[in-house]
């Protein structure tokens, strides 16, 4: 199976869907002539031309709104946000218009738009560029939220997202763009709302998603090797819809749960998960649910300290041992 980077996997998904459906348009800042701020869209302009690969001005409310309007008439825009952090200047378009138009029209309209881009900390760019808004987005019924952790998932989930008739918000990670992994060539589609056991185990379940999956897998290695603890790492992949059956299945197996998320703790994805687990699997739990989140402050710039603000293998390991204590 070909080994490619996460960045290439996203690009392959875009190219294959552009090839498959003439209504797919890629639009965003620097996606065409510049070849992508993070080179995700490199080469697409040369291959598909300026009608399909469209550079926009720095004008997120404007161009996201244009994409939403175009999607109501049957175009399938895949909008790139250079950083998901910039969603705040297009909040009304994304979460009033895209999220609500189907409902407010009594189901007469659907909005098949994808908004994608990186949403992560860890790159020393300070608080304005380090937002992880998956909890904010998923708080809006009508939208779907995807956070892939591996190249194969990035490709397969993006293809599903582009084919989906609801608005899908696809959160990538600049720290993952260079990560490599095996990705099936050609048609490889991963359905939204299906979690994946990235490592099987029997003593502890780590429920996680995005880059925190990698940290959790690294910690699981140490737990196995140094502490003889068998850890199951469950990658949610999609936040909404949520594959909660897989969470329940894993909890029933291990009876101990740690949630790891690159999220500020207040009203996070983990908060929702913890509520649901205690509500639906109370009798399966042998101890309180633990959670490891981003340390609760705006993203710090200082490079070595930012590492300690975010989940990392050392912090996951410590949290896992506390969960089992």
């Amino acid at each position: 199976m070909p080994v490619i980077t996460y960045r290439e996997a996203v690009r392959h998904a875009l190219a294959e869907e552009l090839e498959r459906d003439p209504n797919v348009v890629v639009m965003g800042e620097e996606v065409a002539q510049f070849n992508g701020a993070y080179k995700v869209t490199e080469g697409l302009l040369a291959r598909f031309g300026p009608q399909r690969i469209v550079d926009t001005p720095i004008s997120e409310a404007g161009f996201i709104g244009v994409g939403i309007g175009a999607s109501m008439l049957g175009i399938r825009p895949v909008m790139e946000l250079m950083f998901w952090s910039f969603y705040s200047v297009a909040f009304d378009q994304i979460l009033n218009n895209a999220a609500n138009v189907r409902y407010m029209s009594g189901g007469q309209i659907h909005c098949p738009i994808v908004i994608r881009g990186p949403a992560n900390g860890g790159t020393n760019v300070g608080a304005t560029h380090s937002h992880t808004p998956e909890n904010v987005l998923a708080n809006h019924p009508g939208v779907k939220v995807v956070v892939p952790s591996t190249p194969a998932d990035a490709k397969g989930l993006l293809k599903s997202a582009i084919r989906d008739n609801d608005p899908v918000f696809f959160l990538e990670n600049t720290m993952l763009y260079g990560e490599k992994g095996e990705v099936p060539a050609g048609e490889h589609v991963v359905p939204l709302g299906l979690a994946d056991v990235k490592r099987a185990g029997t003593d502890l379940t780590i429920v996680t998603y995005g880059r925190s999956v990698l940290h959790s897998l690294a910690a699981a290695e140490v737990l196995e090797r140094e502490h003889k603890i068998s850890t199951e790492v469950l990658d949610l992949r999609t936040i909404r819809p949520l594959d909660f059956d897989s969470v329940l299945k894993s909890v029933a197996k291990t009876h101990r749960v740690l949630i790891v998320e690159e999220q500020k703790p207040f009203a996070s994805v983990g908060s929702q998960l913890a509520y649901m687990i205690q509500r639906e699997a109370f009798d399966e739990l042998d101890g309180p649910i633990h959670r490891l989140a981003t340390v609760d402050a705006p993203a710090i710039y200082s490079p070595p300290v930012e590492v300690e603000q975010l989940p990392n293998p050392r912090r996951v390991l410590q949290a896992a041992l506390e969960t089992l204590a």
Partner: peptide, 10 residues
């Protein structure tokens, strides 16, 4: 208004 421009785009 951006949606209106989007209808025109389509």
């Amino acid at each position: 208004i951006p949606l209106g421009a989007g209808l025109a785009y389509a």
